Computed example of a mutant assay.
Amino acid sequence: MTSPVTIERRYHDRLGLSYLTAGASGPAIVFLHGWGAFKELWWSALRDLGRDYRCFAIDMPGHGESRIGRADRIEAIAELVAEFCRDLGLTTITLVGHSMGGSVAVELTLRHPELVQRLALIDAAVDAYRMPAYTRTYLLPNAGWAAFRLSQAVGRAFRPLGQRVPHEHGGGWIRPWLRRASYLATFDPEGLYRILRSLFATRADDRLQQIRTPVLVMTGQFDSLAPPAHARRLAKAIPGAQYVMIPASLHNPMDERPRAFTRALRQFLANAKAQ
């Protein structure tokens, strides 16, 4: 019987980044979560992939236990992640970016192509200005800030329930939402707001054609934030990108359909290795 993979919590003092690590050997995978999310979102993936890979899941600046400092723009976050990799001696990585983390992952890949050996974009908010207009609700003049603070208030109300949801909860929609809402309620709103503005101001556009590493573009079947149409357009813009849809998933397939997510990611890694 295979021993269960141990997940460790660590903190990079100089960079002010909290992260999880799993797996003692194999190629390195770095996971970047989305806006308002947290490193534990990847828990089930770390348990599975940690058997064959060295996995690192970072709390993005201003999220979880990571301080924001000056990393309140997508470009600055990308450089911070690159510095994190250098400090840990990671010379080549598979980079997995979800939602806002996908935008950071693309920026990092364009800036440091020698570092990123493979790239997986999960419901990625790349060129977020192309996403549905309602995704910019929090940025509306006057009403946007109030709507965002209301979302955090809702999260605080549900926090007692959200804290009871285990990291390995088996998937679904309700329990993952409760857990995510309870985390969002604890983050610094002003820092999150600055990062959100940067996300919608960041554009990859024609630069996507410069990506030459193997790329997986994954989307949830019922994602309304970065819908399948957005993901298909992204896959078409990146040379040779593979497109995969996870059935019965919303915006967080790693949390809502963890087994299907891990199978798809493993298949991509196997195919990319064979190329």
Results as ranks from 00 to 15, higher is better:
Ala272Ile: 03
Tyr193Ile: 01
Gly170Lys: 06
Ser249Thr: 04
Met245Gln: 14
Ala37Lys: 11
Asp127Val: 08
Gly170Val: 07
Met1Val: 05
Ala82Gln: 11
Leu139Val: 02
Met131Pro: 05
Leu15Met: 11
Ala226Cys: 07
Ala82Cys: 03
Ser151Arg: 08
Phe148His: 13
Pro166Leu: 10
Leu225Lys: 03
Met245Lys: 07
Arg67Val: 08
Pro166Tyr: 08
Tyr183Met: 12
Leu269Pro: 01
Thr137Lys: 14
Ser151Ala: 15
Thr109Trp: 02
Pro253Cys: 02
Glu168Cys: 13
Ala28Leu: 10
Ala128Ile: 03
Leu90Pro: 04
His167Val: 04
Phe222His: 13
Trp173Ile: 10
Arg14Met: 03
Leu161Phe: 05
Ser3Gly: 12
Arg197Ala: 07
Ala204Pro: 00
Glu65Arg: 14
Trp35Phe: 04
Gly36Pro: 01
Arg111Phe: 01
Val30Cys: 00
Val104Asn: 01
Ile246Arg: 01
Pro258Gln: 11
Arg233Thr: 01
Leu199Asn: 03
Ala235Met: 01
Val104Glu: 06
Pro160Thr: 02
Met254Gly: 04
Thr91Gly: 07
Tyr129Gly: 01
Ala71Gln: 05
Ala235Pro: 01
Leu80Trp: 00
Thr135His: 03
Asp223Thr: 15
Val116His: 09
Gln275Val: 12
Gly62Pro: 14
His33Met: 13
Ile93Trp: 08
Arg14Tyr: 06
Asp188Tyr: 11
Arg257Leu: 09
Tyr193Gly: 10
Ile74Thr: 02
Leu20Cys: 02
Gly101Ser: 10
Gly36Asn: 06
Arg259Ala: 11
Leu95Lys: 12
Arg156Thr: 04
Arg263Gly: 05
Thr137Tyr: 08
Pro141His: 10
Pro247His: 06
Ala235Asp: 13
Ile77Leu: 02
Leu95Thr: 02
Ala45Glu: 04
Val116Cys: 07
Val116Ala: 10
Asp52Leu: 13
Arg263Ala: 14
Leu140Asp: 06
Ser249Glu: 01
Thr21Tyr: 06
Tyr19Lys: 12
Phe31Thr: 00
Trp35Glu: 00
Leu184Lys: 03
Pro132Ala: 06
Pro227Arg: 11
Lys236Pro: 09
Thr262Ser: 15
Trp43Gly: 05
Tyr243Ser: 04
Arg67Ile: 13
Arg194Val: 00
Glu79Cys: 14
Pro61Thr: 12
Gly23Met: 02
Thr262Asp: 11
Pro176Leu: 03
Pro227Asn: 05
Ala76Ser: 00
Asp255Gln: 08
Ile246Trp: 00
Leu80Asp: 01
Ala181His: 06
Val96Thr: 09
